[in-house]
Amino acid sequence: MNEYENAIEIKDLTKKYDGFTLDKVSFNVPKGSIMGFIGQNGAGKTTTINALLNIVKKDEGEIRLLGLDHEKDEFEAKKQIAAVFDELPFDDRLNAIAMDKILREIFEEWSTDTFFGYLDRFALPRKKKFGKFSKGMKMKLQIASALSHNAKLLIMDEATTGLDPVVRNEILDIFLEYLQNEDHTILMSSHITSDLDKIADSVTFIDKGKVLVSGYKDEILENHGILKCTKDEYKDIDPGDIVSARLNDFGAEIMVSDKAACSRKYSGAVIDNTTLEDIMIYYVNRGKKEWR
């Protein structure tokens, strides 16, 4: 049994495509936590996850999963990993009974009882073909199969995208339940930041192939703030303090990355708390600095 502190360790991960480069991405996901991996479409979330799972070959960098090298010890690591994608990767002609027979031969620790237990809990039919499932049912099925082989690491790529709020909440509850075991870890990529606001312990924000922010969610939310001021006051703000600023007819709303320091520096200014969605929007527009 290998000991590890971080369920995922990524250091300087680089992958070059024509027109896109994943540029020296580094972050760690501590064991027993849930990390939200956020960024807009095309930011590099899926490429990073595919590189983690060795679905795409990395050009440079190091990746360790559950303390194991993701290439050398690939199959040992994958016995303990479950991946959930935004679309069901099972053929429409299959049903849950057939899927159980397939996966119990693939995963040593597959539990038929757990799988059917989840199906009953999600009210999913056993004999109905997957082609007749709704999107929510398909996602629940994927999660049921991901949680039925005692996986220690759950990697999800846009798993909650396209689901209605009721199903999303149901699924988030399952994740919180899964995390009750301190050996379990989740990496959840999403651009629905409200889900991550609810459950994530830490957050990594990626844009155009580069990690912009990574750390504990509470610290990130604590450090960032939106400074509201008039147009005249805006001119006096040190550009070094500004991530980006949204201008309107009355003034400016400025994202600052060190709320405490800015409170001292600009005494009297109103600095509101921020959300992950705000952080994402302001960082995405950091190149323009000023936007409407």
Binding site: K78, L88, P89, F90, F107
Partner: peptide, 14 residues
């Protein structure tokens, strides 16, 4: 088409 080919790379199978 069903993404099984992609999913198969996440399985502990060579």
């Amino acid at each position: 088409q069903s993404h099984w080919q992609l999913y198969s790379y996440t399985l502990p199978v060579s």
